[in-house]
Design a protein around this nucleic acid. Sequence first.
DNA 1: TGAATAGTTACCCAATTGGGTAACTATTCC
DNA 2: GGAATAGTTACCCAATTGGGTAACTATTCA
Lengths: 114, 114
Amino acid sequence: MLEEPLALDRMFQALSDQSRRGMIDRLGNGPASVTELAQPFAMALPTVMKHLQVLESSGLVLSEKSGRVRTYHLRKEALASVERWITERKAAWNRSFDRLDQFLTDTSTETIAK
Amino acid sequence: MLEEPLALDRMFQALSDQSRRGMIDRLGNGPASVTELAQPFAMALPTVMKHLQVLESSGLVLSEKSGRVRTYHLRKEALASVERWITERKAAWNRSFDRLDQFLTDTSTETIAK
DNA sequence: TGAATAGTTACCCAATTGGGTAACTATTCC
DNA sequence: GGAATAGTTACCCAATTGGGTAACTATTCA
């Protein structure tokens, strides 16, 4: 339950690059090899590999190699933990709005009560 | 409706640092000055300012200065656009699961039909 | 008006990042 | 066994990042 802050660091970092988000989108359609993932990008293969390593070390993606082909696939639970961070914040913000509402209500009631 | 990719880059980048996420958490409780935001951190003020500038240029946060005090506050709509990116992906993934389900169903029906 | 406060600017520095080439190691196919 | 394919390793490079110090400019308060 205790979210590792460094893991979140790496996930947000991994998501902060358009190309990497593109690779995640591609993987949303199912597993793919390095070459398939590289195909839409005007990048040298080793550069693509670095992006994939960033994604894998963030935990958003996994790979295993069979023969000469390495296949990547999504780890949806990881994306879920990013989502959790966001929804927790939204919840907290709404709570503090509620407190403000309450304060305003109390204040105007008092004013009326005078 | 067309999400600016570079804006997302900057938001995810801004969220990829624990200290910056801490400042966002603090701002969830209401607006705060630079000094207040700096208080929990063992960082020099100019370092804190850089974090705040990263947050502001990502659009997650806004500030205005009155007298000698600069006050920061959240821009919740911005966090919402990060959230949107994530929920869109989740939706897409579920759709591709549905297709897989359909495929498996069709296949087993065929097999039975033989 | 002078001291204290709040923030800002101008730099410095090492580590990381996102891009690249060249050369290499498996695997697989004819 | 040799060529083609898929990926990997070892480097290089400039720009960015996350930290810092020193010195400065408002503002506000006594």
